[in-house]
């Protein structure tokens, strides 16, 4: 029993860190442009497949990079894909919420077909950091890749925090998400901020993708779960709030881990839906949602 609890504590912390990574980019994009990017899951998938292509010799035979090089390169590439998605597609239609909503899901599903075309439907397993850490004292074991994900997640969140609080470029993102009009009046280049937010969100999705693929596998349907999770976490945390997303990621992560441990893996996924419905009924604005002053 004690071992069970210990493993819930450890596993929950590890998986929640990845969930936070998944959700932050999603919520940031919504915060600055009001766009719910349903292609966010596809960006995560892009992270997994990009990394896979860079490190494995079975995909692109001429390219095999060391993970230390491949990882940052993947993050940059996915960031650029996200940036491109915004500049080429979303920017031309974002004034219409419904059209944007639909276009991003179509992008996601088209991307699935593209991945199937290039990589075929079978799952690819790859290792980011091999090995298992036995924690004798707690009677539990941790995959090194999970540990690495945890460290990378908090590292990324630390950098993000530094970026949005200490640099002008990042502060303008925060200002825009608080009040677009206010930001515009103080001379913030709002379209530029949006594009930059997509870049950053893409990078975060790239990190999440590398680890999700590493923990599970890269496959063409891997975008669905993360998208649903991002959606749920963001609603639980309060739409648009980074702080709320992190908190909610841990709530959902721990709840799932605990349900999986004590009630069985088959009910694990259902738990997040229960949380979602409860939150919608009791606290529709989420943990950190705000009521805005209009005057």
């Amino acid at each position: 029993m004690l071992g069970d609890i210990a493993s819930v504590i450890v596993d929950g912390a590890l998986i929640s860190a990845v969930y936070a990574l998944i959700a932050i980019g999603f919520t940031m994009v919504f915060g600055v442009g009001g766009v719910l990017n349903l292609a966010h899951g596809a960006l995560i998938m892009a992270g997994a497949y990009t990394y896979l292509s860079l490190v494995s010799d079975s995909i692109l035979a001429s390219v095999t990079l060391h993970p230390i090089v491949a990882f940052p390169l993947t993050v940059v590439i996915v960031g650029l894909i996200s940036y491109g998605l915004y500049v080429v597609l979303v920017r031309t239609i974002e004034e219409n919420v419904v059209i944007t909503f639909l276009a991003t899901i179509v992008v996601a599903i088209a991307f699935t077909e593209l991945v199937t075309l290039v990589f075929h439907a079978q799952p690819y397993q790859y290792s980011v950091v091999p090995g298992v850490l036995q924690v004798q004292a707690l009677g539990t074991r941790i995959l090194y890749v999970e540990l690495a994900a945890f460290v990378a997640s908090w590292g990324a969140m630390g950098l993000l925090w530094y970026y949005v609080t200490k640099t002008d470029s990042g502060r303008s993102i925060r200002a825009t998400s608080m009040s677009e009009r206010g930001a515009m009046l103080t001379g913030v280049d709002v379209p530029g901020v949006r594009a930059r937010t997509w870049l950053v969100a893409g990078g975060l999705a790239g990190i999440a993708g590398v680890f999700l693929g590493g923990i599970g596998a890269a496959e063409p349907t891997m975008w669905l779960e993360p998208l649903a999770l991002a959606f749920i976490i963001v609603v639980v945390g309060g739409i648009g709030s980074i702080k709320g997303s992190v908190a909610a990621a841990y709530i959902v992560g721990y709840l799932q881990t605990a349900t999986g441990q004590f009630l069985g893996q088959s009910v694990r996924g259902i738990m997040s839906l229960v949380v979602l419905v409860v939150v919608l009924l009791v606290l529709p604005q989420g943990l950190y949602g705000t009521e805005f002053v209009h005057e």
Partner: peptide
């Protein structure tokens, strides 16, 4: 019933999750 009382994307979210479930 739970999702359409609310404005915004909640409804889309619930429908999306329903399909997966």
């Amino acid at each position: 019933v739970p999702s359409l009382r609310l404005r915004g994307p909640y409804f889309s979210l619930v429908t999306f999750v329903t399909v997966l479930l």
